[in-house]
Amino acid sequence: MATMTITSGTAPAKRRVGVLAGLEHTATLAWRNLVQIKHNPMELMDLSIQPVMFLLLFTYVFGGQMSGSTHAYLNFALAGIIVQNGLFATLSTAVGLNNDIQKGVFDRLRSLPIARSAPLAGRVAADLVKQLWSMLLMLGIGVALGFRPHSAVGVLGAAALMLVFALAMSWLSVLIGMLASSPEKVQMMAFVVMFPLTFSSSAFVSPSTMPGWMQAWVKVNPVTSLVDAMRALLDGGPLAASLTHTLLWAAALAAVFFPLALRAYQRRT
């Protein structure tokens, strides 16, 4: 019982957390968020089974009707499926942060002498790793099903673009996570906002058959420019306009939501 001394040598009273130490804290907390997957079958499903399921369903259910062959549709739709999955995944940042707040894990972390930004940065970094994993999985299975990427550089570019856009979106997600009263509410919002947002775009069909008012919306929907840019990178086609649009959107999202998210985070920190 008394084999352990609790008080021997109190930790040195450091006042400021150095940059290097801050990075270590971030890495440790990112590790924590990734190790969680091991014990959470639901998350494994979100990250792996769901993307693959959508990929298979879209390809084999819609493929023949949409493009005459599953193969042709896969080449067209893979970008859209990846984008939809990636945008849904950005909301896991909100769910995770909110969960940590409600469960008191955040208070525990905040009572430790660590960098203030580490819990946030660790979460965002881990979610980007998860994002990358799902994307690579879908690309790999897409290739197994017959998808032939336009070029290797294009694939890398598409992965990078998706991560950049996801990072920009994640600040909106952080803001939601800080303000929402429960993880369930966040999940509901994900469904109600993300579903129409991703479907009313060029993700799964060419907008030309949609009614005029919807085409007008699809055209301004940022998801459309992201999908078009991803499609151009993966499958070939004109890139410049959609890529510029996407990057501008990402910059705008980050410019608006990064400060708001940070302020909300600091108010809870």
């Binding site: 109190t10 450091k14 957390v17 969680q36 008191g104 894990v105 208070d107 525990r108 002498p113």
Partner: peptide, 27 residues
């Protein structure tokens, strides 16, 4: 004023067990 130094000296067990349910005890 010395929040950082205070944090290095204290331990906190909040009203609700703040353990990460998705990690093992060791983790």
């Amino acid at each position: 004023r010395d929040a950082g130094a205070v944090r290095a000296a204290i331990g906190l067990t909040g009203q609700y067990a703040a353990v990460d349910e998705m990690l093992t005890g060791t983790e």
